[in-house]
């Protein structure tokens, strides 16, 4: 497993993965011109986590706007996390959304509905 640090841009989130502590965070906007290229750097890191002997992961998602094509990548990320859970790993996810952002709140609920066995905690932030 390797660390991954990608700085945020106007169109892409900051992505941080610390291999030692198994912490992943996605924060910011997500509407890259090439979704496959952007998340193509993120997904292999999670796959290597899933295949490693790591026993847990803490995930923080704090997105402002995510376009529908980024949803495919985010769904893939959740799918890998859920596979990790099935392998016996402990997965905890904090899904943060702005206080008046019911779209991101609902999206968090939608992920909860799709992945009912994942420990997904919705949190309002100011």
């Amino acid at each position: 497993m390797k660390d991954l640090f990608i700085d945020a841009t106007e169109r892409t989130p900051a992505v941080r993965f610390r291999a030692e502590s198994c912490e992943l965070s996605l924060e910011g906007e997500s509407y890259p011109e090439d979704v496959a290229a952007f998340y193509g750097d993120v997904i292999p890191v999670l796959e290597s986590w899933s295949e490693s002997d790591a026993v847990r992961i803490h995930v923080l998602v704090r997105l402002i706007y995510i376009n529908s094509s980024s949803m495919k990548a985010l769904y893939r990320i959740f799918d890998i996390l859920d596979n990790g859970r099935e392998l016996g790993k402990t997965v905890s996810i904090r899904w943060c959304y702005l206080v008046d952002d019911d779209v991101m709140q609902e999206l968090g609920e939608d992920f909860k509905d799709r992945f009912p066995d994942l420990d997904l905690f919705l949190e309002v932030v100011e």
Binding site: D34, V35, A36, S68, S69, M71, K72, Y75, R76, D79, D110, F111, R114
Partner: peptide, 15 residues
């Protein structure tokens, strides 16, 4: 959302 993984092309079929 569940079907998006298999969606062909750059989008997710969710637009």
């Amino acid at each position: 959302m569940s079907k998006s993984i298999d969606h062909e092309g750059p989008g997710a079929g969710l637009g």
